[in-house]
Design a protein around this nucleic acid. Structure first.
Lengths: 241, 241
DNA sequence: GATATAATACTTGTATACAAGTATACTAAA
DNA sequence: TTTAGTATACTTGTATACAAGTATTATATC
């Protein structure tokens, strides 16, 4: 019944975390990785037993995962939704939507501090690559985009980002770990894409920004065909600067 | 200490609701209406006493309100953020963003069922006006937009809507109640705007859609100057169809 | 064997108890 | 008067108990 569990979420990121936060992080990873399959029905009592905690932090976790749209709470148990290709595409839709929106705002304001900060993160990415630290690299990837979003100082766009962030984090973590084992040299390209993104912000070049954004998404999931699909959508709403 | 509280949230909407849901609905309304002022520090224990319930539903409520960005949970008490003009503008930014995105999708698909459904809601709005039911009217206003968003079948855009919806609901409720007392005839215009929105969908006329969307927002808050500000943003990202 | 009814084993939602940590206020000493 | 230290009254987070409702299963009856 109580097999030893290999945790998917980096424990070092949970140093100051409460039990509830640990549960939600780990549960999310298990759902995103497919270890807990879509359609599975989660019971609060069973989860509490599995994690050896009370129902309180479990309830908290289910509420959060439900808001993240990866489970659905019903009268009898929570149904795991998980992420199909469709949902992952949709997440990218939203990211493109908000990052494009934010970009419009940024190009009108002073971005020197932002660019400096982004370059700092870029250098830290380089170090992560050098030391083969996939988890750290993932964190910096997320930090990169969050820094851009925060720079616009838009609390409701930030709200969307915050709602999306944990799932993104999980996806990126899983993807990067795999790649660090298989395609080590991929990371140089990811690095380059982010450098391109900074350049797009600096030069206020929207086309370049969208290009690097799409390439960045492809780097996470490696789905090239969707790039064009998304770009088509954006093109309609996009136009020239 | 225990003054009789006049509830702001329609009790008829809470027939099947749990204590937690009642608390969150009422607390939200009190914050949005300003009855609980920005900066106020909410204590779980005090709230539990005020609402005569235990801390469990209060905790749940605070988590939800925190995700909605109208309070901020800290180590000692939750700080009420509330909604300033800036935040309300930001909510509209997001609504314009997602409804425009959804619109792009809709014009490519079969919209006959959607238009029929929207017309039904439109007729119900008419009845609400006739019977001076501001609350019911608010509900239909929200339902109108939610129907459009649902039609696109995009779970992550719907997630954003769901995160935004309760606050929107509160804002619209407060606004409509005031207007039903003061500017009764305003509602004919709101009605017309929604009819215009349907027409925009039917005729796949993006400019008309954006126009009616903006007018709709102005109807809620009556802030005309922001209309142009928002349109400027959209214009940059907008272009022609 | 089929069906209706009752018992049982679940489920969630709420209340309460307790532990651990933090801010505040008070007291005592310099 | 100021400062150090302690006591106290908070705070949140977690565990547990209980109530009310639902699904399932077993049993009894036709």
């Amino acid at each position: 019944m109580n097999e030893p569990i290999e945790f998917l979420y980096p424990s070092k990121w949970l140093t100051k975390a409460s039990t509830g936060e640990r549960v939600v992080s780990e549960l999310r990873m298990q759902i995103l990785s497919g270890r807990i399959e879509s359609g599975t029905i989660l019971s609060e009592n069973k989860l509490a037993a599995d994690f050896s905690v009370s129902r309180s932090p479990i309830r908290e976790a289910l509420k959060i995962l439900s808001a993240e749209n990866i489970i659905r709470q019903e009268r009898m148990g929570a149904v795991v939704i998980g992420l199909s290709e469709k949902e992952i595409e949709e997440i990218y839709d939203v990211r493109i939507l908000i990052e494009t929106f934010i970009y419009q705002r940024l190009v009108r304001s002073d971005i020197t501090d932002l660019v400096k900060e982004l370059n700092k993160i870029l250098e830290m990415m380089k170090v992560s690559i050098k030391y083969n630290d996939a988890d750290e690299f993932s964190l910096q990837d997320l930090q990169f985009h969050e820094t851009i979003i925060r720079a616009a100082n838009h609390s409701y766009i930030l709200m969307i980002w915050n709602n999306l962030k944990p799932v993104m984090e999980g996806l990126i973590l899983l993807s990067m770990r795999k790649r660090f084992k298989e395609n080590q040299h991929d990371f140089e390209r990811i690095f380059t894409n982010h450098a391109l993104y900074i350049e797009a912000i600096e030069k206020k070049d929207k086309a370049l920004m969208i290009q690097s954004l799409h390439q960045n998404f492809d780097d996470v999931q490696g789905r090239v065909e969707d790039m064009w699909k998304s770009q088509e959508i954006l093109a309609e709403g996009g136009g020239t600067k």
